[in-house]
């Protein structure tokens, strides 16, 4: 059972306190977008063995949504950060690089 630190209230929360909310950093495509972009937004998801960026909600705590960078294989957590961002913070990216030099995930590296 995972533990993640909520970046808002600082609590180290058990998985039972949290709710998984799917992939992070999705870009929304609305009316006027072309079919390929919209399909990608609606259906296409990363399923990596390794670094992944996810949305979680501290649903049985402060209620905030946040992002987590973790390894799906080892469950190592590189960091959690607020959801109000389009990109993971540099210090988290650096920490990933220490473990996985040259990693990429969608447009991030």
């Amino acid at each position: 059972m995972l533990t993640l630190q909520c970046p808002y209230c600082g609590v180290w929360a058990e998985e039972t306190e949290l709710h998984a909310e799917g992939e992070a950093h999705l870009k929304r495509f609305g009316p006027g977008s072309d079919d390929a972009d919209f399909e990608s937004y609606l259906f296409m998801r990363e399923n990596p063995k390794g670094v992944h960026f996810e949305r979680w909600r501290h649903s049985h705590g402060c209620g905030k949504f946040f992002h987590a960078a973790r390894c799906t294989m080892t469950l190592k957590v590189f960091g959690t950060y607020p959801a109000q961002t389009l990109e993971p913070p540099q210090d988290i990216k650096d920490r990933i690089s220490e473990t996985y030099p040259g990693w990429t995930w969608r447009n991030f590296k």
């Binding site: 929304r28 209620g63 905030k64 949504f65 959801a83 109000q84």
Partner: peptide, 13 residues
């Protein structure tokens, strides 16, 4: 309520 919060916190913050 969670749906509303999702959009307010993560898209239109």
């Amino acid at each position: 309520h969670g749906w509303m919060e999702d959009w307010l916190q993560c898209e239109w913050w």
